[in-house]
Simulated scan of single mutants.
Amino acid sequence: MTYRIGVSGWSYASWRGDFYPEGLVQRRELEHVASRLTAVEVNGTFYSLQRPSTFERWAEQTPPDFSFALKGSRYVTHLLKLVGVETALANFFASGVLLLGERLGPIVWQLPATSPYDPDVLGHFLALLPRTTQEAARLAARHDDRLGPDRAVTETTVDRPIRHALEVRHPSFTHADYAAQLRDLDVAGVWTDAPKPWPVLDLPSSSIAYARLHGHTRLYASRYSDRSLDAWAERCRGWHEDGRDVHVYFDNDSEGHAPHDAERLLERLRPT
């Protein structure tokens, strides 16, 4: 069991000259993040399909024990709304995801606040998700022409587990059936911390625990207090004692607090 504490994205101008030292070239920012934290959540995979060369570069810039949590495609979650997504999923996993190898962490799927709980739609979607890299490679082989031969990665040399997490924002997900469905399908329910009225769910449904901290009082902006981070550290230790790998990603990035808060939480979790 490990603590994966990091930030959601790393390319922010407000971090330069602060978390990033003056003079650090932009192409070395990920390397700097990896020297200070243990994981990162990738935003780019949410907005568009990346290239294999991008995943290769990320792997080259980070140590083997660093973890990349990837945000699943918004085309799947926001446009298709989880229906008829087989080809879109194939394209996502063929885009180069498998090139991260041992650095590949969970895939987090974020549903919009307008999407209510539909157990049938959700169950079908979650059952489609690959649970190992070999399953992901077989799914990737079904990609369409959006990915030409030079852009598709459909093979892997190792077979490793792939974990999935789901962030929901509609109040109907507080239904008890949702928690049971996550447990049955071994999917982590994301703890979402934000000032918006999104449901806060602590669902021990998977071998991982996953939290996204968007800013407790101001969305994407507010700094976490020492008292708040003490409480988060205690929560993380509890998840760890339950036998779960712990993933916490700070998304309060607009004023530059995210990397510092992640470091402060990680320091609280280091062995004394």
Rank of each mutant, 00 (worst) to 15 (best):
Y249N: 13
S11L: 11
Y3G: 09
D120C: 01
V168C: 05
L269T: 11
H78P: 07
D150S: 15
V7F: 13
P197H: 06
H175F: 03
A188F: 02
A69S: 13
F250S: 15
V246Q: 09
H164T: 00
S67W: 06
V40W: 08
R138F: 11
R4M: 08
Q26N: 08
T133G: 03
R160Q: 10
A258T: 14
H240S: 09
D184F: 03
L129T: 01
T38Y: 13
A94D: 08
R103M: 01
D202A: 06
T192S: 13
T45G: 07
A179D: 11
D186L: 00
A233S: 10
L219S: 09
A113P: 12
V7A: 15
A39Y: 12
R103I: 01
V190D: 06
T272F: 04
W15M: 09
G256S: 11
R237K: 08
D159K: 09
E60Y: 00
L147S: 11
Y12F: 14
G72K: 00
L129E: 01
V97W: 05
L201R: 09
L49A: 09
L104H: 00
P64E: 11
G215A: 12
L79C: 01
H32N: 06
Y178S: 02
V7M: 15
F19P: 08
K81W: 04
A88M: 03
D65V: 10
S73R: 03
Y249D: 13
A34P: 08
R163P: 00
L82Q: 07
R57G: 06
Y47L: 12
A209N: 05
T157E: 15
Q61K: 05
W232T: 11
V246H: 10
L219G: 08
A152W: 11
Q110D: 08
V76L: 02
A165M: 03
W58N: 02
S172I: 06
G6A: 13
L229T: 07
I5K: 14
D18W: 14
R74Q: 05
D230Q: 04
W239Q: 02
A152E: 09
P149T: 15
P119K: 02
R270P: 02
D150G: 12
A39W: 12
L266M: 14
R268W: 07
E234G: 00
P259N: 12
D202M: 03
Y210W: 05
L49V: 09
V248K: 15
Y117D: 00
T174W: 03
D159C: 11
V168F: 09
V248L: 14
V187A: 00
T62L: 08
L100D: 04
T54V: 14
V25P: 04
D245T: 05
L104N: 01
L139P: 08
A88G: 07
H247F: 15
T45M: 05
D202F: 02
G101H: 05
V33S: 11
H175M: 01
R160I: 04
F125I: 05
D202E: 13
V246M: 06
A152T: 08
G44Q: 15
G243W: 04
G105M: 04
V158A: 14
T133N: 02
L24S: 02
R237E: 10
V7L: 15
W15G: 11
R237Y: 03
D118G: 04
L99A: 04
L129D: 03
E102F: 03
V121S: 07
T77E: 02
R74T: 01
V42F: 07
P204M: 13
L100M: 03
S73V: 00
T132C: 04
